[in-house]
Design a protein around this nucleic acid. Structure first.
Lengths: 352, 352
DNA sequence: CTGAAAGCGCTTACAG
DNA sequence: CTGAAAGCGCTTACAG
């Protein structure tokens, strides 16, 4: 009998007491046998484990947690898991978390700061052992103070890793793609292929990933003697396919000479540029080269495959987990500074 | 002082006892004040809530859970959250779960049945209140008996919703897209536009979604007087972009007359077909029409936007949550039969 | 309206 | 090697 029905017909959970009674030992002995900690005679151990198997008994993790003071649960907040970037990092993270016995609660904030606050609150109530937060307010440069403070407060109580630039301001550990290095690799590559006039498009200054890339593009471009321009967009959806598409469309309508390369701020934008170009009868990379960032799977789902800067998801996700785990293990953890992950260029057919 | 340091410098959690002591009441009163259940004098309530606010106190959910017998946690297994289909359904599901006070643990199984078993086990240990499982073994027609039995066993103990066809065999509730209706809508639409020769590609017979669509395509095609053919692929990656791409490529190499329409088994496949067609210099929809299933965002990230059958993610995710919630609330839940969700055709420029 | 007490299911010194 | 007991932090009848 797996579940004993009480007077209300509510199935009662099987406990170590039930096992103990059936074997004729105390609950303590059952606990020792199952956990493998402390001495138990072979005879008893065998009997106990047989019943555990027979009933497929699982000790109640919550009781264990209450006792142990940790939950083996991690909270993970992203704006939208439908975004490949977040999905890819999460996938790799979760793999490591699972292997190490952690379960991850995945929450979507839609980039809504107040919803983010609510979710952060729920995670605290759950007493998760650690928190990872990506995107949303992490990327916002001019973030109102109260949102910064909130993260600081939470971070004081719960180990937290922020996946965004400038995690220092939140007082928590950060893991982030080294956008500067990414731009450097990209520009060096483009230069090596003989490109000169390069346009960056698709971002917006108020977000770190765009801001950093822009700054780096100008600085490194100058160093390499390249002709760099940056044209961000206005409107909401600056990181989208249609942002890239519209961006080139407008450029074409202006009838000024095109740059030799358009670098989308991410692969969605790059794909938009590619498709607009193809529609306009431009050859890629003959008439125009295109690159992206993030190495999303869509880079190979187009007639020309898009050269892109890969954040190296596997390494990234693993690093996030390792960093968080260290914090979780060190009681009264000291948050380190942001570690930047060196990205990698993946060369495809959208560039010579 | 939010955390009192004990001799080991381990920050101690704040409990209702600390609050009680500071106000000068019992823990029971604090509990009543916070939960809002039972009587508490206004005076005490005010004092207590002030401290709760001051210390940002959160009652330990695990202690509450242990008491209440439920965890307000749901386990959710998908093969890979990087797949847009799963990501979209999860996103909508999680929205509702959060609103109703549930947190969702998202696990990736990679479609590996044994990993799936392990994950299922961990979820049981966590004593989640409910489980959702999508893809992986759910879609496999010739699933070895032991995997079926396992799901049956888990489903007996924990409310479970399977997002796949034929959930009945697992003895748990199912929510699934009505693929038959989807094919019907698609074919009726194609007929209305005057199309006759229609080819389905990209699936494999051992998976329900393909199998059902194939069967429906033949049956409904005959009813409507259409010329239907189905060409599944061999190899691993039958649901991918390159499956679609290769499929058309081979067709073109055979130099037989092309069908008027190619229906990809999903949007990735459809996109592959589209791009192969464009590369071969075919006009879409002039020379060839293309359609997909799932209404993924990539349908509009191509030069021609792809007509697709939408599973209506919003409704789908909500329905999955509602179904699971009903099971979780009804103790000793009786699993219903699979409810099919009527899909919707989204007409775009890849068809006349 | 309030507090003492028992209990949720487990673990862990402690004494034997 | 084993069991009785206390405790993890909360809730909930129960008696007052």
């Amino acid at each position: 009998m797996i579940s004993i029905l009480d007077s209300n017909d509510v199935p009662k959970q099987l406990t170590i007491y039930d096992i103990a009674k059936e074997v004729g030992v105390s609950a303590a002995t059952v606990s020792r046998a199952i956990s493998g900690r402390g001495y138990v005679s072979e005879a008893n151990k065998t009997k106990i484990m047989e019943l555990v198997k027979k009933y497929n008994f699982k000790p109640n993790t919550f009781a264990q947690n209450l006792q142990a003071g940790f939950t083996k649960t991690i909270g993970y907040i992203v704006p939208h898991i439908g975004n490949m970037y977040f999905a890819n990092v999460y996938y790799e993270f979760e793999k490591w978390a699972s292997r190490h016995g952690y379960m991850t609660i995945l929450l979507n904030s839609k980039g809504d700061y107040d919803l983010e606050s609510k979710l952060l609150n729920s995670l605290q109530e759950k007493h998760v052992d650690g928190i990872v937060i990506m995107g949303g307010r992490m990327d916002e440069i001019h973030l109102p103070d109260n949102y910064v403070k909130e993260i600081q407060e939470v971070g004081k109580k719960i180990p937290m890793v922020s996946c965004g630039a400038e995690a220092e301001r939140f007082g928590c550990s950060g893991i982030y793609t080294d956008d500067e290095k990414g731009v450097e690799e990209l520009l060096q590559f483009l230069k090596s292929r003989g490109y000169q006039r390069i346009l960056f498009t698709g971002g917006a200054d108020q977000y770190y990933p765009s801001y950093i890339k822009k700054k780096a593009a100008y600085a490194i471009g100058e160093k390499l003697g390249l002709d760099i321009s940056v044209r961000w967009l206005t409107g909401n959806d600056v990181f989208s396919y249609s942002a890239g598409y519209d961006s080139l469309k407008i450029l074409l309508e202006e009838k000024k000479p095109l740059p030799e390369v358009i670098c989308g701020i991410n692969d969605y934008v790059a794909l938009g540029v590619v498709n607009c170009a193809l529609e306009a009868g431009l050859k890629i990379p003959g008439d125009l080269a295109v690159t992206g960032f993030d190495n999303a799977s869509i880079t190979t789902m187009t007639p020309v495959h898009i050269t892109s800067i890969s954040p190296r998801y596997e390494y990234y996700g693993k690093k996030v987990f390792n960093t968080l785990e260290k914090l979780m293990q060190a009681q009264g953890a000291v948050h380190g500074k942001t570690s930047l992950i060196k990205p990698e260029i993946i060369i495809r057919s959208s560039t010579i």
